[in-house]
Amino acid sequence: MVDAGDESGASAVPAGVRVPDGSAVVQYAWHDAWVVVASGSYDMHSITPLAEAMGVAAAKHEKVVVDASGIAFADSTLLNLLIHTHLATDLRVAAPTPQLRRVLELTGVDAVLKVHGTVEDAAAR
C-alpha cells in the first residue's frame, strides 16, 4: 500500500508502487474522496497490491474513487474486489477502460456500482 500526501486534498502528490507484472497502484486525496489509481492487468496473480490498497482505503475513508482509466485487463477477480469494497465504503469507479466497462456491463455490476466518466465527477458527487 502506498499513502501519498495529506488527506485534505489541497496539494497531495501521488506516489506509486510497481509490481512485477507492470501493474501499479497510486493513491492520493482529491477533495473529500480518496483516489486509488489502478493501472495494468488484474487477475488472481496480480490483484494483491490493489486489494491491499483498497482494503486500507475503505477502512480509512468514507468515499473511495477507483481511477480505472489505466486498467488494461480485468477478470472476475477485480469485479469481486470492487463489489467487496463497495460493501465496505462509498465506492465510485471512474473512467473505466472500454474492456472494463464491457465486463461491468456484461456481468451487471455496472448496475450495482457507481460508475462515472471522470475522477472529478466521481469525487464530486
Rank of each mutant, 00 (worst) to 15 (best):
L91C: 14
D75H: 02
S41M: 08
R125I: 01
L100S: 06
N80L: 12
A111V: 02
A58L: 01
A74P: 03
Y28G: 02
S8E: 14
E7F: 10
A94D: 06
G16D: 14
V56I: 06
V26Y: 11
A4L: 07
R18N: 11
A10I: 07
D32C: 10
S39K: 07
R102Q: 15
V109H: 03
L50K: 10
D110L: 04
G55F: 04
A10E: 13
T89L: 10
A111F: 02
Q27N: 14
V2F: 09
V19H: 04
A68V: 00
V35I: 12
H45W: 09
A111E: 15
L78V: 09
A72T: 15
S46A: 13
D75G: 00
A33D: 12
A122L: 02
V26E: 14
D90P: 08
L81A: 09
H84P: 05
L81P: 02
S23R: 00
A123K: 00
A74N: 07
V93W: 03
A88V: 05
V25L: 04
E62T: 08
S23M: 01
T107E: 07
D67L: 10
A68M: 05
H86A: 11
G108P: 02
H116A: 13
F73G: 07
D32F: 07
V119P: 00
W30A: 06
A53L: 02
V17Q: 07
D121P: 04
Q27F: 03
A57P: 08
R92C: 03
A123I: 02
Q27H: 13
L100H: 07
A10T: 15
Q99K: 06
A95K: 05
D121L: 09
A38E: 05
H84T: 14
W30N: 01
L50F: 12
V17C: 05
V109S: 02
W30S: 14
K114Q: 15
G108Q: 01
G55Y: 08
H86W: 07
A95D: 12
T118L: 08
